[in-house]
């Protein structure tokens, strides 16, 4: 059971990393961040269940909740930034954001 969840979350990490370097839509980048955070949360829950089978382990779950809420904050800032980018650049293609280089 734990193993399935663990493998699943490692797979999610891989998916997120793939998304980071292949997707050019900015919102998809933010979704990749979300996937990565969820992978971490899943790991936390799985290990929480593994350490105390049959019980609800308080510490990892609360850390997961904290992470979910902070991811919400990050997403909010990210969406605001995407809006600002759209206003300035007129695009949400992340590969068009290449004025800063060298």
């Amino acid at each position: 059971m734990y193993e399935a969840i663990l493998v699943c979350s490692v797979a999610l990490i891989a998916v997120a990393l793939y998304g980071f370097y292949s997707k050019r839509h900015m919102i998809k980048m933010v979704i990749s961040v979300e996937i990565l955070v969820n992978a971490a949360n899943l790991l936390l829950i799985a290990f929480g269940a593994y350490r105390a089978p049959g019980y609800v382990e308080l510490l990892p779950q609360s850390l997961a909740i904290l992470s979910i809420s902070s991811a919400g904050g990050v997403t909010a800032v990210a969406l605001a930034l995407i809006l600002a980018v759209y206003k300035v650049y007129g695009t949400v293609d992340v590969r068009k954001l290449r004025r800063l280089r060298g």
Partner: peptide, 14 residues
Amino acid sequence: AGSALMLSGIAIVY
């Protein structure tokens, strides 16, 4: 992304 990777690492350490 870095924070999330670190959090995954912390989860495993836990």
